[in-house]
């Protein structure tokens, strides 16, 4: 039997596209890495919204499905 070890990277899906994330990466670091304006996006992880105040403590796990939507203001 193969022994599992802590992976150095995980694979997540962001808006349907697979991408690697460093082990220990958080929602906050993902938003930073994607170059997004934190105040202008909302994030859902595995079909549940992640409050902005939780972004820096929510660690991304292998297989996580992340949806990011932008806050639009025109009309």
């Amino acid at each position: 039997m193969e022994r599992s070890s802590t992976p150095l990277a995980v694979t997540i899906a962001v808006n349907g596209a697979a991408r690697p994330a460093a082990a220990g990466a958080t929602v906050q670091s993902l938003i930073f890495e994607l170059g997004l304006d934190a105040e202008a996006v909302a994030v859902e992880r595995n079909r549940e919204i992640v409050k902005r105040s939780d972004w820096d403590c929510r660690i991304l796990e292998d297989g996580d499905t992340i949806e990011i939507v932008h806050f639009v203001g025109g009309g």
Binding site: D37, E39, A40, A42, I49, R52, F71, G73, G74, G75
Partner: peptide
Amino acid sequence: CIFPQAPRSRQPTC
């Protein structure tokens, strides 16, 4: 609940 405040950075307008 979703966006606790309006973005402070300049956002696109029409």
